[in-house]
Each structure stands twice: as structure tokens, then as C-alpha cells.
Simulated assay, not measured.
Amino acid sequence: MGRTTRTEKGCEPMRHFTIHHDGVAIAVSRGGRGRPLVLCPGLDTTRAELGELVGLLRRDHDVVAFDLRGHGLSPAAGRYTFEAFLGDLSAVMARTRRPGTAPLLVGYSLGADLAVHYASEHPDGVAGLVLIDGANPVPEPFVTEDLLPLFRAMWEDAAARRAADLGTDRQVLLTGREILDLNIEVDAVRARILDRYRRIVPPVTVIASASLSGGGAGAHGERLDRNWRAGIDRLVRELPRVAVTRLDADHRMPFTHAAEIARIIRGAHGGPATTA
């Protein structure tokens, strides 16, 4: 059974329901008005945490937001792989699409990589893509042997804090090791992602952070930031049809710069240019 929540005047109420797929009940919310939009969150991120951005977009979009398996209100699953998460997105896209109308697909971080893969396999399935700080064809992997202990400790600490401090609507059920393994897998995915971009027919907009790390991790952070910026430079150089906007922000920009991101999304691919 689905449920609804109240929303601001002029917008359709948010409906909350589940999509059963691959043995998992994917938690979904939908509401708003205007052109359809699907928002795919990233690894270690829930739709509740993207609530400010969703609220802004609902003013002129029919927004579908959901939790990937093991995130938020979507329960634990037997496997956490890139293909499994791509299956979650594909199930949501298939079961929420308006007849005859393809949605704008917006992805954040891992969600951007998933969006690129989905669009490359379903050329008529999306009206356009907006990729927020993800799907970056970085020249070098991030999880290198020398940084493995740093990343392992970071994700184990993040998983412990999640379990101790956050409510059920913001919970991430993956262990630190599972998150680390996903990051290693994403490195391999991004090594080949330019080929996926080349197969995409609809227009693509990329919103990239100026500093992935936000100035943290010292010299390691500087190295990661250089790699991130080099990937965006490579994307611009090899695929000039991709529109790139760089924000003076770090990877948490959907939480710190939601209004600016909403304005970019509104103006993307012929959308309304109203202010947030």
C-alpha cells in the first residue's frame, strides 16, 4: 500500500510506495508538477538527505526519488554490485514512466554513473541527463594500493557513525567493506565510461565540483582533486557536446548548493528557467 504526504500549494502530494525488484522492495517517492524527472542518489546517500533538492525541483517537475538497495527505507539485499544498483534504477525507470513521455534523469555521484549506463542502453528512455559530480572519466583510479588503508578506515568509520547516529529514513545498511568494494568497482567502471557517453543520444549536462575532497585529507586530498579535475578536463576535450558547469563546491554540493543545482537542472535541455 502506498501513502501520501502533504506538500506545498500547487504541487501534487508526495506519494510513497515500493517497487519490488530482485527480491528487494525499493522505496520510492513521487510528487510535484511539470516535466517528469527521476533522481538517482549515490552510494552512501539516501533520498531523505537529498530532500532539499527534491523540494526545489518539485516546484516545476514531477519528481521520482528513490532509495537504492540497502539505503534509507529500501531494505538490505544479498548483493551490492554496480549491476545490482543499475537494476534498481532500471526497475524504477520502467515502472514510473509516463506513457509517451521520457523523463529527465538526474544522478548524483554513483547515481550519475548509473544514469550514464542506463541512458547508453536505453537511448529512447530519457529526455536528457544531468550528472552531479559523478561519471567522471578520471585518468587514474582513486583506490590505489597506497590509499587503500585510508579509504578502508574512512568507510568503516562512516558505516559505524551511520549505525549509531542516524534515523531509519537515513540509514545505510552496507558495511564499510561493502562500500569500499563498490568504490573499487566504480573505478573500473569509470575507466571505460567514455565509451558509454559516446553511445548516449539525448543531451548531457555535467555539474562538477571544484574540489572533490573539500580540502580534506591533506596531500592525499590534493591528489584526488587533481585526478577529479583531470577527468572533467578529459570529458570536455573528448566530448565537447557534453555541457559542463563547475561549481565552487566539494562533493557534498547537493546538500550545500541545492538551490544552485536546482537552477541548473531547470535550465537543462529546454526546461523552465524559474528561480529557486
Results as ranks from 00 to 15, higher is better:
A115I: 14
A115V: 14
A115H: 13
V116G: 02
V116L: 08
V116E: 03
H117S: 14
Y118A: 13
Y118N: 12
E121A: 15
E121M: 15
H122K: 14
H122P: 09
D124W: 10
D124K: 14
G125S: 11
G125Y: 12
V126R: 04
V126D: 05
V126E: 04
A127K: 10
A127H: 07
G128M: 10
L129D: 05
V130G: 01
L131A: 02
I132L: 15
D133Q: 06
D133N: 08
G134K: 08
G134V: 13
A135C: 12
A135Q: 12
A135R: 09
P137A: 06
V138E: 09
P139M: 04
E140L: 08
E140M: 04
E140G: 00
F142W: 13
F142I: 07
V143M: 08
T144R: 15
T144Y: 01
T144N: 00
T144D: 01
T144W: 00
T144C: 01
T144Q: 09
T144E: 11
T144F: 01
E145A: 13
E145K: 07
L147Q: 03
L148T: 10
P149C: 09
L150A: 07
L150S: 02
F151K: 00
R152K: 07
R152D: 07
A153F: 02
M154V: 05
M154K: 11
W155E: 11
W155R: 11
W155T: 04
E156V: 05
E156I: 05
D157H: 12
A159I: 10
A159Y: 10
A159L: 06
A159P: 03
A159W: 09
A160E: 12
A160V: 06
R161Y: 08
R161I: 09
R161G: 15
R162H: 03
R162S: 07
A163K: 12
A163S: 14
A163L: 11
D165P: 00
G167L: 04
T168H: 13
R170S: 14
Q171K: 08
L173A: 13
L174F: 04
L174N: 02
T175I: 04
T175N: 04
G176I: 10
R177P: 00
E178K: 04
L180C: 03
L180Y: 05
D181P: 01
I184T: 14
I184E: 14
E185Q: 13
E185W: 01
V186K: 03
V186N: 02
D187N: 01
D187F: 03
A188N: 05
A188C: 07
V189H: 13
V189M: 09
R190Y: 03
A191P: 00
I193D: 06
I193V: 15
I193L: 12
I193P: 02
L194P: 00
L194M: 12
D195L: 11
R198K: 10
I200V: 14
V201W: 08
V201Y: 08
V201Q: 15
P202K: 09
P202V: 15
P202R: 12
P202L: 13
P203W: 13
P203V: 14
P203Q: 11
V204A: 07
V204K: 06
T205E: 12
